[in-house]
Amino acid sequence: MKIPVARKRIGLLGGTFDPIHVGHLALARAAQQALPLDEVRFLPTGHSWQKQGAATAAEHRLAMTRLAVGDTPGWTVDTREIDRAGATYTVDTLRELREALGPDLALVLLLGSDQLRNLATWHRYRELLQHAHIAATQRGPHRLAEFDPLVEVLVATHGCDALPDAPAGAIVFFRMPPVPVSATVLREALARGERPAELLPAPVLDYIDRHHLYQDGAARG
């Protein structure tokens, strides 16, 4: 009897990536191994409606993301959110990907615990699970517990111990090693002239130096 082949799984890691750092990469590696995933797509945001203030220009954030991803097996960069005009909504990205890739493969939206805790503030958040699974991991001090009541209902309804062999619809948790880093702290350190080489991929740090990013008075937006 022929054993059916499990459907392909694509993990989706979105973020401003301003700049992309070792914490982002650690999350991607942990998800790739734990779930497991055939591919991880990094999706730099264009204009994030939830974040106030100007981000570093999209061309720089995209370039840094491509440098960080490099030739890592199974990792790719998707530019659709940067290419899209107007505000960036995750639900629209998932709908576009589902239409482009078809109904059968599994899409897995990768979130840190801080993002999951705020999920009820996302645009049309209840529709996310129509297009993808959600896989969350603890990041920083934000525990995977004591959620907003609306998120609690979502987890109670869709939570699973393991990612099912289905295209979408489940919420699962996975572990990653603690990586104490935040993009805000990194930008502040870079603005002071520091070079936190342990927190940034070497090609990304070189790019920041070469383009004088995050320095006091450096152009953003």
Rank of each mutant, 00 (worst) to 15 (best):
111 L>V: 10
104 D>C: 08
205 L>N: 08
175 R>G: 13
149 P>H: 11
141 P>V: 12
45 T>A: 15
140 G>M: 12
89 Y>R: 04
101 L>S: 02
16 T>I: 11
89 Y>I: 02
106 A>C: 04
107 L>G: 00
71 D>L: 13
169 G>F: 02
25 L>P: 05
26 A>I: 10
61 R>S: 11
149 P>K: 06
198 E>N: 13
207 Y>T: 05
204 V>H: 11
139 R>V: 07
134 I>M: 05
103 P>I: 03
184 T>S: 15
9 R>I: 03
5 V>G: 07
135 A>F: 06
162 A>M: 08
129 L>R: 04
205 L>C: 06
168 A>R: 03
185 V>W: 10
196 P>M: 12
153 V>Q: 14
112 G>Y: 02
199 L>W: 15
25 L>S: 10
149 P>F: 04
176 M>T: 11
53 G>Y: 03
83 D>W: 09
22 V>E: 14
209 D>V: 10
56 T>L: 13
127 E>L: 09
107 L>V: 03
81 E>N: 04
55 A>V: 09
91 V>I: 14
132 A>V: 05
189 A>G: 07
79 T>G: 09
65 T>S: 13
129 L>E: 05
90 T>V: 07
94 L>A: 01
136 A>S: 12
180 P>F: 08
159 G>H: 07
173 F>G: 03
134 I>D: 01
94 L>V: 00
155 V>N: 00
179 V>R: 12
158 H>Q: 07
180 P>R: 05
200 L>D: 04
110 L>S: 04
8 K>D: 04
208 I>Q: 04
17 F>C: 10
76 T>E: 01
168 A>E: 01
140 G>R: 09
34 A>I: 01
